[in-house]
């Protein structure tokens, strides 16, 4: 665990809280893509299936392989799952009437199908758990596309939405730094599937980062995209 990894995780955690706070405070989820949020629940569900493995070790009192890192990961995984499901739940129940569904027009199969095919071809092990893990990595890289499309459609984002987007994009950018650090300091550490997907994910946020910093510098309340 290095400073980049822990900062990335905390930034990721912050992104959920920013979004939940925003939705609760404004009683609205306008400008937030339901499709992107739905994809994040799928990403975490497919990736964190190993929670059952940890749970199995705990209920059989097999603590030999449970380290501090396992406990940290388990705690964070449960938080990420709970937060993402809660966001989807909020957007489909009390905030449904404020949802931007009419403009949330991205076709999810356009990312789901390629990610599934890629996960079946390019994986480290041809096992169900490993393929689902790989699928989640590919899907996370592109899951923000409906949100970006909605942002372009709308032409602007309010302050909290752009902080949320910055936190989500920033977390993966910090993971890139973490991977460089781990590659330099840990023998045999190389996970090219995560590296390539992480790079693609960060690159997708590139334009957004640029406008975010321009906005922060100029002190505007809302982020407006050039038309």
């Amino acid at each position: 665990m290095n400073i980049f990894r822990i900062s990335a995780d905390l930034l990721h955690l912050a992104s959920f809280f920013i979004l939940i706070f925003k939705m609760k405070a404004t009683k609205s989820c306008k400008g937030i893509s339901f499709k992107t949020q739905l994809m994040y629940t799928l990403v975490f569900t497919c990736r964190y299936l190993d929670l059952f493995h940890v749970l199995g070790m705990m209920i059989t009192f097999n603590f030999a392989h449970i380290t501090g890192l396992t406990l940290y990961n388990t705690f964070m995984k449960i938080l990420f799952l709970a937060a993402s499901y809660y966001i989807v739940y909020l957007m489909r129940t009390e905030l449904k009437s404020t949802s931007d569904d009419a403009r949330d027009t991205f076709v999810l199969w356009h990312i789901l199908a390629p990610c599934a095919v890629l996960a079946l071809i390019f994986n480290a092990q041809f096992t169900i758990l490993e393929i689902l893990w790989t699928f989640s990595i590919y899907l996370e890289a592109v899951a923000v596309m409906p949100q970006l499309m909605l942002l372009i459609e709308t032409g602007e984002a309010d302050s909290l939405s752009s902080h949320y987007m910055f936190a989500v994009g920033g977390y993966r950018a910090l993971y890139l730094v973490n991977w460089v650090y781990r590659y330099a300091t840990e023998p045999y550490y190389s996970n090219w599937i995560a590296w390539i997907a992480g790079f693609v994910q960060t690159a997708l946020f590139g334009d957004f980062f640029y406008y975010y910093f321009v906005k922060i510098m100029s002190g505007d309340a809302a982020l407006k995209l050039p038309t």
């Binding site: 990894r5 995780d9 990721h12 990736r47 190993d50 890192l69 990961n73 964070m76 995984k77 990420f80 390019f122 994986n123 480290a124 092990q125 893990w133 993971y175 973490n178 045999y188 550490y189 190389s190 996970n191 090219w192 599937i193 995560a194």
Partner: peptide
Amino acid sequence: TGDYVPHDEL
């Protein structure tokens, strides 16, 4: 595809 890497990240 190289050596298997355990998933110790989030």
